[in-house]
Structure formats: structure tokens, C-alpha cells
């Protein structure tokens, strides 16, 4: 698999590696997918990178590659920001080869990472017709998670037809941020757009939302999909090739 802009792959890894340290990458002719849960089984990430999004891609037989995202992250930190990236696995090999090429083709770096033997647990994610779908700037969502984490470790997300409200409370007191739906949309990327079939009010652990925001560099927008008593879906698109989707189980008032 070859990417002209290796930085896209680095952003994917940086978006995943806090939530899951290692994961099984499923490679087939259609591209690369990954699904993994965090250690407490509260959050899940689902990655799709379609083959047509790569500059070149070949997969002669399906492979499940156990990869340490922490190690992969360290290797990718050596990549130049404009480098192209090629990842390959030779048949019956126990390692993955990561090759980086500088833009003006004068520097070639090659790394080999040992593959891991992971038991791949796969969950069935039901197609959900969400009550509410929010699109907003990913930087804005990152900022809200950071601000709300000051006040407490849970965020209540309430949607109404006017907008969406994030609130948190804790020992210090409480705080809330309300975003009004954008009316005159000049730049789609900066708009707050809410499609709502019915209002929802759900509570989530903010530390997971903040971990999801590590994937924000992938896309200027984030999609949040909510339904009562259903895991939140937080989606960052990967331009022209797929997406990173995070799911987080809600908290319930005991």
C-alpha cells in the first residue's frame, strides 16, 4: 500500500494509538480495515481505508496483521512531513516493512516492524438510524472536550432544534457550552449542522471523547451521531479513502 502523503497514515495512527495500543489490521483486495476496543471495553474504533484511496495498492491474499500502534507511531515519527509512505508485507513473513521516500527522492528510509500474534475479537456493530446527527468543526469539538474536562469527568450532551449543549459538573461547580445551529452557511467546514429526528440527552466519559479527538487532524469536520441508550458514534472522514469511527457506550444514571 502506497500513499503519496504518508502524513495521512501517521494521523490515523496518532488518532488510534491512545485508545488502543495494538490492533489487527485486516488487509484484503478492497483495502484495509481495523476494529478494536479499548482495554475497558467501553469504546471501540473502526477504521476503513479503501484500496482506491491509495496511490497504489495490491493484496494478493487476505491477511490479518497484528501491529503495535505504539511502535508504528514511533517509526512514523521519523517520517518527513512530505514523505511518501509504502507499507508492504511479504508472504509468510513475520514483519511489516515501512518505507519512506523524501519528496525529491533523495532520501529513502526503511524500517521493519515485527508483527504480533493478536486474538482478533470482532463485534457486530448494528446499522443505526440515529435520532440526531451533528456536524461541526473538529477543532471546535476538541476544544469543547478540553474545556468540559476542566469541570468534570462526564459530559452531558443535549440536543434541541436550536442547537446542542455540552455540560459538565464536578467538585469545582459546573459549566456548559451551547452551540447554535449555523444558519447562513458560508463555509461548510465551519458550520454547526444538526439533523434531529428527536431530542436526545446522553452522558459520556469525557476522557474517551478527548482520546477520539486525537484523530481530529484527519478532517476539518467531525460527525457526532446520537440516539437514546445507544453508543455515540464519532466520525472523522479520511478524504477520498474512508473514515475513522469511534463508538462510546453512554453512562446511565444509577
Amino acid at each position: 500500500a502506497r500513499l503519496l502523503h504518508g502524513s495521512i497514515f501517521a494521523k490515523v495512527i496518532e488518532g488510534l494509538r491512545e485508545l488502543v495500543n495494538e490492533a489487527t489490521w485486516e488487509c484484503s483486495g478492497n483495502g484495509i480495515t481495523l476494529q478494536a476496543m479499548d482495554s475497558s471495553h467501553v469504546a471501540l474504533v473502526s477504521l476503513v481505508m479503501r484500496s482506491e484511496g491509495f496511490e497504489s495498492y495490491r493484496c494478493d491474499r487476505n491477511m490479518s496483521l497484528g501491529i503495535s500502534l505504539v511502535s508504528m507511531s514511533k517509526v512514523l515519527k521519523t517520517m518527513g512531513k512530505d514523505d511518501s509512505l509504502t507499507i508492504r508485507v511479504n508472504d509468510d513473513s513475520d514483519s511489516i516493512i515501512i518505507a519512506m521516500e523524501s519528496q525529491n527522492q533523495d532520501k529513502f528510509a526503511d524500517y521493519e516492524l515485527r508483527l504480533m500474534d493478536l486474538d482478533s475479537e470482532h463485534l457486530g456493530i448494528p446499522d443505526t438510524d440515529y435520532s440526531c446527527a451533528i456536524k461541526m468543526p473538529s477543532s471546535e469539538f476538541s476544544r469543547i472536550c478540553r474545556d468540559m474536562s476542566i469541570m468534570g469527568d462526564s459530559v452531558l450532551i443535549c440536543t434541541t432544534k436550536e442547537g446542542v449543549k455540552f455540560s459538565a459538573k464536578g467538585d469545582l461547580g459546573q459549566g456548559s457550552i451551547r452551540l447554535v445551529q449555523t444558519t447562513n452557511i458560508e463555509k461548510e467546514e465551519e458550520a454547526v449542522i444538526i439533523e434531529m429526528k428527536e431530542a436526545v440527552a446522553l452522558t459520556f466519559a469525557v476522557r474517551y471523547l478527548s482520546m477520539f479527538c486525537k484523530a481530529a487532524p484527519l478532517s476539518p469536520q467531525v460527525g457526532l451521531s446520537l440516539s437514546e441508550d445507544t453508543p455515540l458514534m464519532c466520525e472523522f472522514k479520511i478524504a477520498e479513502m474512508g473514515h475513522v469511527r469511534f463508538y462510546l457506550a453512554p453512562k446511565i444514571e444509577d
Binding site: 471495553h41 467501553v42 471501540l44 457486530g124 462526564s154 457506550a249 444514571e253
Partner: peptide, 14 residues
Amino acid sequence: VQMQNLLFRFFSDA
């Protein structure tokens, strides 16, 4: 107190 759900409650163990 708010209890944290686990994903298994919502997603089937395929």
C-alpha cells in the same frame, strides 16, 4: 452516581 455501560450491552459479540 453514573454507571458506565460496556459496549457488549449494545454490540453483539460476532
